[in-house]
């Protein structure tokens, strides 16, 4: 891997909206992954938790699409990501992470929409009660299992491609490591589960305590995986780690994300007590947001070019 910082690049101004997209997209992907895996490997007790995940994934990915569109210089041309504006044929470059990501996000949008409609029908919302038996039949059959598998794959993609997108460029730090995608995926899993737990506790959704405990355990594993990914990323950066994690905002990772957003929730889960799950989940979510802010902001203090204002 190239371990020389290229500071001659320009700032793409991927800031606030992109950080929120990475964060909310991560939650949607993480929650959906857990729900789809529960559909594949879990049992009937997991169903209330699965429904929570399917209820949040589609609205969140809708917000993500909106954030990305607003962030474009020309939002009315958002469809140029998918359709060639001069021929009307699909626009797809398998070697461009943003092109593949646009299709991946669309695919996840379709999966999450179908799951959202399914749980609406199951719960009889929006006059969809008559489709409830059909939804249940589709969910439990072979088609349902294949659908869950496809949905899980699209969610894994959404949770990780954003990191691959950052890597595939020439910005300092981003382009000096190939571990950001894996790191973002681990963070997506933990923030997705944390959101499910938090929603259950705050909205009194009555998910079985054993299921919440199981989710908490999975969350702990995801946090440990995230810590491992961060350590590997730091090692992969070699001597550049000092620039990456020693200057603002990368400094937030060792100073805040690791102690407050990762280790503290692990300890809270271990200590137990009332409201331990909610407390841990809140800190995991704050940590997940700060992690993305820090990673997205890492290159910019290192750029040598002066920005010319107009």
């Amino acid at each position: 891997m190239n371990l020389e910082l290229n500071t001659s690049v320009a700032d793409p101004q991927w800031h606030g909206l992109i950080v929120w997209y990475f964060f909310l997209g991560g939650i949607a992907a993480g929650a959906y992954v857990m729900a789809a895996l529960a559909d594949l490997f879990g049992d009937i007790d997991d169903r209330p938790g699965v429904r929570v995940a399917y209820y949040i994934a589609f609205p969140l990915v809708g917000v993500c699409g909106l954030l990305l569109t607003i962030d474009l210089g020309r939002p009315e041309r958002f469809w140029h990501m998918l359709i060639q504006s001069n021929t009307g044929w699909p626009m797809f470059k398998w070697w461009s992470p943003m092109s593949v990501g646009s299709w991946g996000l669309s695919a996840f949008g379709l999966f999450s929409f179908a799951s959202f409609a399914g749980v609406l029908a199951e719960d009889g919302w929006l006059g969809l009660k008559r489709f409830s038996p059909l939804a249940s039949r589709l969910r439990t059959g072979l088609a349902g299992r294949l659908f869950a598998l496809g949905g899980a794959l699209s969610a894994f993609f959404l949770g990780s491609y954003t990191g691959v997108l950052l890597t595939a460029g020439n910005q300092p730090v981003w382009s000096n490591t190939t571990w950001i995608g894996a790191l973002f995926l681990a963070s997506a899993a933990s923030t997705g589960i944390a959101t499910m737990v938090l929603l259950d506790r705050s909205l009194k959704l009555n998910i079985k305590e054993s299921v919440i405990e199981h989710l908490e355990q999975l969350d702990s594993w995801a946090i440990v995986l995230e810590l491992v990914m961060l350590a590997i990323m730091a090692i992969s950066l070699g001597h550049l780690s000092r620039s990456a994690f020693g200057t603002w905002p990368g400094l937030l990772i060792p100073a805040f994300v690791v102690p407050v957003g990762l280790i503290f929730p692990l300890l809270v889960k271990r200590w137990g007590g009332t409201r331990a799950a909610e407390t841990a989940s809140i800190f995991v979510l704050v940590g997940g947001f700060v992690l993305r802010s820090a990673v997205v902001g890492m290159p910019f203090p290192l750029l040598s070019l002066t920005t010319v204002g107009r």
Binding site: S8, V9, L72, G73, P75
Partner: peptide, 21 residues
């Protein structure tokens, strides 16, 4: 007429050449 201002090209250019109008 095709560019939608996504700015991915700016992250890719190693010379800091491209900017958004």
């Amino acid at each position: 007429p095709v560019c939608n201002g996504c700015r991915d090209c700016i992250t890719a250019c190693p010379f800091g050449v491209i900017h958004v109008s």
